[in-house]
């Protein structure tokens, strides 16, 4: 059985969630339209990590009794350890743009908006950036609009910086003190050259760059079984696409 691209990304993010980090991921929250990160948190749990997932969009049994307001209050207090952000553009300093490209930003095509990014990037100690499209138009030298900055000057309150950026081609970790990405692993089929060519910003490349570790058979069984069952009500279209139609 071939591993679906989504399964590979889920496994890669699950590895990052479990990676040693000064801020252990005890409580992860997932916002709107993030099925791959949500599945990754559930997979990390399945592999034994003691992490709680709060799913903002969950309709039945929603984890909050004060909706999104409670999510942001929790984050403000530092009670959410891990969150996921993406962007129409992401630059080499881990700045993200959720508004759109052009000058003024959004003039070429207007995207939905900032959501909570301008707050979560500061209050949540661990952020994993995720964007499937890996091309020079997404990974740019400098974003046209900063929805959330990757780093901040000393004296500006923030609990952490992005831990990593996961794309459809590779995993970059983020070196916050230097505000630079480091190529950490290549997805199957990619090379150092193919990634360099598809990336609009400069980054570091260590001597050894392994292949991204995909999901194990146990991971895949869990994803198609209990994890799907837990997330299907929230992400019906994603689950049907990746794991196939439900047997009648």
């Amino acid at each position: 059985m071939t591993v679906a691209r989504e399964e590979l990304l889920i496994a890669a993010i699950a590895d990052l969630i479990a990676a040693p980090h000064p801020h252990p991921a005890r409580h992860a929250a997932v916002g709107a339209a993030s099925p791959i990160p949500a599945h990754a948190v559930m997979l990390a749990r399945h592999r034994g990590l003691d992490v709680r997932l709060s799913l903002l969009q969950q309709r039945v049994g929603n984890p909050f009794t004060e909706g999104a307001r409670e999510l942001f209050d929790l984050a403000g207090q530092g009670r959410i350890d891990l969150f996921f952000l993406g962007g129409v553009q992401i630059d080499g300093q881990a700045n993200i743009n959720l508004i759109g490209t052009g000058q003024p930003a959004g003039s070429s095509a207007r995207l939905p908006g900032n959501f909570g990014s301008a707050f979560m990037a500061f209050t949540v100690p661990r952020v994993i950036l995720f964007r499937e499209e890996h091309s020079p138009r997404v990974l740019v030298p400098k974003v046209d609009y900063v929805s959330a900055p990757g780093v901040s000057p000393p004296g500006v309150f923030r609990r952490g910086s992005p831990q990593a950026l996961v794309t459809g081609r590779c995993v970059f970790t983020f070196d916050a003190p230097r505000a630079r990405f480091v190529l950490a692993s290549l997805h199957p089929g990619e090379t150092r050259e193919s990634v360099r060519e598809a990336t609009g910003f400069d980054y570091d490349e260590p001597d050894a760059v392994p292949e991204t570790r995909g999901p194990s058979e146990s991971d895949r069984a869990a994803l198609a079984g209990p994890i799907r069952a837990a997330l299907e009500d929230t992400y019906p279209q994603f689950c049907a696409r990746v794991f196939g139609a439900r047997a009648a």
Binding site: R69, G76, I99, A105, N114, A118, F119, M120, A121, F122, T123, Y145, V146, S147, A148, P149, S152, P153, V156, F157, R158
Partner: peptide, 22 residues
């Protein structure tokens, strides 16, 4: 809205410094 429900003129909020939103 939380400021309005308390009847105070403003409330502080973390984040946003260094964004293009501010």
């Amino acid at each position: 809205l939380q400021a309005a429900e308390k009847g105070v003129p403003f409330m502080p909020l973390r984040g946003m410094i260094g964004t293009d939103l501010l």
